[in-house]
Each structure stands twice: as structure tokens, then as C-alpha cells.
């Protein structure tokens, strides 16, 4: 079901910026247009890395400059923005990026996954299932999955073009040899649409199944490496594995101590100097929504 045309958010053009001296969404219109062109290419070839003219942003590389540029290019006046950092809405990076867009776009922001139309994220995909019409924007540090084994960009591009993905399995082989199972816990390589190998940015492999056949549009931006790639809605995304060592996600024998969730990604938090620790949901929005619905984890772990 596609939303009716008048509901589709067309990025505002020439609207006066709320912050004097800056264009709407910080970037100038030409830059946004060039990034949108790269995004269109990326959507047309799922998982394929498209070079783009990454701009200087008012923050250092590694803080999500790629994601911010993608967000700035697709955001419209009617969008509702959510920013996640390590699953949380209230960490420095998330708060600052949210405040930045509030200032330069005066868009509505939210912490709720269901209410958001645009979600910029670092490290996590929300536990709440994404819906059609939503856009996920990932901040990517290193876009090239083959970089660890092949330092030459010329060579890796050739390998992508010719689908020479054998060396990537060497990494999984080494994992099984050393640890008895595939120990790659984040940035777990995937095949998109049975064609291109892609790094899903440093999300835990727990989130990899959420990439597959997702109804949301997923955009990936790497600012320093100047690459954009995308997974269009309802695209097949398969995590690499061996026939006798199938892909599996992490599981915990505990439940979240705040909301009692057993199906979410749990963070281990050290709470005192005596080795005391607790396990809580990494997705703060999911956790607080469950708590407000009356769930609590106090009885579960005893």
C-alpha cells in the first residue's frame, strides 16, 4: 500500500530556514539535489556503493556526517524525525543530531519509532517493526565489506563487478576455526538482492534479519568514505553463512530488567563497583513503551 500522493512528503524547496543564514536542512539545494541523485542510483542498484560529493559538516567525521547528509537531502517540512544512537534516543549523538535538525528544519522530532517518518540511526534497527513509508538512514563508518582483505579500491570494485566474494568467506572460516562458531557480532556482511555484498553498518547481527524484506526504505551514508548505498523496500537481504554453519542471531538467557522483554537486544550494564550488573533493552523507546503498557521485569529474573 503506497500512501496517497498528497501525503507523500516532498522536500521543501526554497522555504525560508528557521535558522537565519542557513538553508533548509543546512545543505544548499544543489548539494541536496546531487545527493538525491546518488540516492536514486543507489536504490536502483540495491547494495551497490555509489560515490557522492560528501560535504564538510559542522561536526567531525565518525559522528555521522554521512547519515546527516542523507537525512538532510530527504527530509521535508512534514517529516517526523527520530535519531538513535546505540539504540537509545537520549545519548549525546542522538540528542545533538535531533537538535541540529530541529534548528535548521524546524521539523517535529520524536522518540517513538511508530510516529517517526524518518529515522537516522547508529548501531541499531528499532525493535518495533518498521512500516511502509518510513525511511531508515544509517551512519556508515566503512562501506566496503571487502576492505579487510583487499586494500585496493580498484581491486575491490572489480571484485564487486565480477561477484568475486570468495575471500569474504575466509573471514567466516577463520571465525569458526578459532571460536567454533561465526563470532562476527556486528557489521555482519550480507548479500543484497542476490547480487551485491554489503556492510550493513555496525548494527549487531541480531538486527540483520530485520534488513530482509523490510517495508521501509533503507539508506546508508558514509561521509568520510563518500559512498551511498541503499536497500529498497521489500528487498531480499541474506546474511552470509556456510551450509553446515547457518547464520544465527544472539540470544540471552535473561529478560530485560525494566520491561521483561525476552525478544529484544539486551545491553549489559555495570551498576556498581562490586561487579553488579543488569541486562536492559538497548532500544529505549521499545523498553519504555512496554513499561508504560504495564510490563515489568522485576519478577522474571528471580
Amino acid at each position: 500500500m503506497t500512501p496517497p500522493l498528497d501525503k507523500i512528503d516532498i522536500p521543501a524547496k526554497g522555504k525560508p530556514s528557521p535558522e537565519p543564514g542557513f538553508n533548509f536542512a543546512y545543505l544548499d539545494e544543489q548539494t541536496k539535489r546531487s545527493i538525491r541523485r546518488a540516492l536514486l542510483k543507489a536504490v536502483a542498484i540495491p547494495g551497490h556503493q555509489i560515490p557522492f560529493g560528501s560535504r564538510e559538516m559542522p561536526m567531525s567525521y565518525g559522528w555521522g556526517t554521512g547519515g546527516i547528509q542523507v537525512t538532510a537531502s530527504v527530509i521535508g517540512q512534514n517529516d517526523v524525525l527520530k535519531v538513535i544512537d546505540q539504540g537509545a534516543d537520549d545519548t549525546t549523538n542522538a540528542v545533538n543530531i535531533r537538535r541540529f535538525f530541529k534548528r535548521v528544519c524546524q521539523v517535529e522530532t520524536t522518540e517513538s519509532t511508530a510516529k517517526a517518518t524518518l529515522i537516522q540511526t547508529r548501531h541499531r534497527i528499532p525493535e518495533t517493526p518498521l512500516q511502509q513509508g518510513q525511511i531508515m538512514v544509517y551512519q556508515v563508518p566503512i562501506p566496503e565489506p571487502l576492505r579487510w582483505i583487499e586494500p585496493s579500491e580498484v581491486e575491490t570494485r572489480k571484485m564487486h563487478a565480477l561477484e568475486e566474494y570468495g575471500p569474504m568467506y575466509v573471514k567466516l572460516y577463520e571465525d569458526i576455526t578459532h571460536f567454533g562458531h561465526i563470532a562476527t557480532a556486528y557489521d555482519y556482511p550480507v548479500m543484497v538482492n542476490d547480487r551485491y555484498m554489503m556492510r550493513p553498518s555496525p548494527i549487531p547481527r541480531f538486527d540483520n534479519p530485520k534488513l530482509d524484506m523490510s517495508p521501509a526504505l533503507q539508506l546508508f551514508g558514509a561521509g568520510r568514505e563518500k559512498r551511498i548505498y541503499a536497500i529498497p523496500p521489500y528487498t531480499k537481504v541474506k546474511s552470509l553463512d556456510f551450509a553446515d554453519h547457518p547464520f544465527s542471531v544472539e540470544s540471552w538467557d535473561k529478560a530485560c530488567e525494566f520491561c521483561g522483554a525476552t525478544d529484544s537486544y539486551l545491553d549489559e550494564v555495570v551498576i556498581d563497583n562490586d561487579g553488579g550488573r543488569m541486562w536492559i533493552c538497548s532500544d529505549t523507546d521499545y523498553c519504555s513503551r512496554r513499561q508504560s503498557e504495564g510490563e515489568d521485569g522485576t519478577t522474571l529474573n528471580d
Binding site: G166, Y169, I176, F242, A243
Partner: peptide, 14 residues
Amino acid sequence: IGERLMDIGQRHYG
């Protein structure tokens, strides 16, 4: 040694 095998499409660790 295994890399050459994985290059030509073998996907069974054992």
C-alpha cells in the same frame, strides 16, 4: 587452502 575452494563456490565448512 580453503580460500581457493570458497572462490569457486564451496560453502560447506566441514
